[in-house]
Nucleic acid binder design. Structure first.
Length: 424
RNA sequence: GGAGAGAUGGCAGAGCGGUUGAAUGCACUGGUCUUGAAAACCAGCAUACGUUAAUAGCGUAUCCAGGGUUCGAAUCCCUGUCUCUCCGCCA
């Protein structure tokens, strides 16, 4: 949610900024709502105040044994009037909430203005794509040779967009997740969490997945949601809390499966395990002082980069333009890893500063020692990294002529000392 | 799954349907006292929204949540959620 003050004091300016994100805000409708809200609320609270006063005097009169009938007459028709006024206020506020809950965060001033992914801007590249002296295979082909990546069995078990890994491939997948967690907890200062994979609607709303994107999530029969990312449970850990300033920043990480409906992506990335209903991810979340969120985003992105660098996977870092950013984000860096078989870079991490957008929805605040009033924290999240896609990247970048796959140095201890995968 | 108990401020814990935003204790903050500390004593100590130049006043809301009864609800009724105890089942 945006700061309601922005919608009052700087409505046009805010609407212009939202337009850059491709979100049209009906300012005329909003202003009308705001005017009626003000009148109705003042009216309602005045009525409430009057009635409370009379009700109290009834109590006092009764205690003294006085006749209360005149007072009862006075208050007789107030109830109905108050009810009407309350209902009107309620429906007006609901209309306003309908707008605010569906309105995305404002982009940071440093974000390039643009329409879609074509307007994203490259920030930097790292590493040189390896030159192969043989025809490279993609991960599907490599997985087939090794018999470790089994789309057919997964389809039989569950349907499309699922993957089954076995043998060394399953081990490598596990090794990657372990390695990432170790790196973040031992070197980057994150605390490890094991979190629920299902959350309630309130939690989904806190981090911005609901109500707007309900089609993207799996919902259970008892109205719980399968998490689309560990960002949801981790970030909401501070919902409805007031944190002591000295406890900031809070840095959390978790390795979880992520579940996404991928509604509307029919036909996209249908081959292989690029886009799945279920995939593993190691997620980083930071809860920080508002003054430090910009630098925290840089830091967190570097933590994701450190994984790619340790794995010696070439990648580039891009900044998403206003039109391509996610709903809650104010600024987002994507890391794209080199996939030789596709001869291109593909997203493997996304790191965002959500400023106070999620914090306001969740009521996540901190209290500074010198300021009496609790203030909203800033929240950040980033993939560090998507495990399935990292597996693909390792497979394709570390492939050999005979279809075997070399094990990246940093993973060898996690793989029982193996340096080459060819056993299936 | 069956039976029962409960949910009140940071914590503990009162609260006959009326002047209760809510006793009391602890914690916390400031002060007095003290060489210093402790103890003792005094004072203060919620949040959100609205109005407003105001983090001043004033108003409204909040005793798990949502409905209801009533002139008036922390207190009565209904529904839901969560917690605890016992039985059953179970990784």
């Amino acid at each position: 949610m945006l700061d309601p003050q922005l919608l009052r004091a700087e409505l046009q300016n805010t609407a212009d900024k939202l337009a850059q994100r491709g979100y049209p805000l009906d300012t005329v409708q909003w202003e009308q709502l705001e005017v009626s809200r003000k009148n109705i609320q003042i009216e309602t609270e005045a009525l409430q105040s009057q009635r409370t006063k009379i009700s109290k005097s009834i109590g006092q009169a009764k205690a003294k044994g006085e006749d209360i009938q005149p007072l009862l007459d006075q208050v007789a028709n107030m109830g109905e009037k108050l009810e009407q006024s309350k209902d009107l206020l309620k429906s007006t506020l609901a209309k306003m909430e309908e707008v605010t809950l569906y309105t995305p965060n404002l982009a940071d001033d440093s974000v390039p203005v643009g329409v879609d992914e074509d307007d994203n801007v490259k920030v930097s590249t790292w590493g040189e794509p390896k030159v192969f002296d043989f025809k490279v295979k993609d991960h599907v082909e490599l997985g087939d040779i090794k018999q470790g990546l089994d789309a057919e069995s997964a389809a039989n078990l569950s349907g499309s967009r699922f993957t089954l890994l076995s043998g060394e491939m399953a081990q490598l997948h596990r090794a990657l997740a372990q390695f990432m967690l170790d790196k973040h907890t031992r070197e980057h200062g994150y605390k490890e969490y094991y979190v629920p994979y299902m959350v309630n609607a309130e939690t989904m709303q806190g981090s911005g997945q609901l109500p707007k994107f309900s089609d993207d999530a799996f919902i259970t029969e008892d109205d719980r949601y399968l998490i689309p990312t560990a960002e949801v449970p981790l970030t909401n850990l501070v919902a409805d809390t007031i944190i002591d300033e000295s406890d900031l920043p809070i840095k959390m990480t978790a390795h979880t499966p992520c579940f996404r409906r991928e509604a509307g992506s029919y036909g996209k990335d249908t081959k292989g395990m690029i886009r799945q209903h279920q995939f593993d991810k190691v997620e980083m979340v930071q809860i920080v002082h508002p003054e430090h969120s910009s630098e925290a985003l840089e830091e967190m992105t570097s933590h994701a980069e450190a994984i790619l660098q340790a794995l010696e996977l070439p990648y580039r870092k891009i900044i998403l333009c206003t039109g391509d950013m996610g709903f809650s984000a104010s600024k987002t860096y994507d890391l794209e890893v080199w996939l030789p078989a596709q001869d291109t870079y593909r997203e493997i991490s996304s790191c965002s500063n959500c400023t106070d957008f999620q914090a306001r929805r969740m009521q996540a605040r901190f209290r500074a020692t010198n300021v009496k009033k609790p203030q909203l924290v800033h929240t950040l999240n980033g993939s560090g990294l998507a495990v399935g896609r990292t597996l693909i990247a390792v497979m394709e970048n570390y492939q050999n002529d005979d279809g075997s796959i070399s094990v990246p140095k940093v993973l060898q201890t996690y793989m029982g000392g193996k340096t080459l995968l060819n056993q299936g």
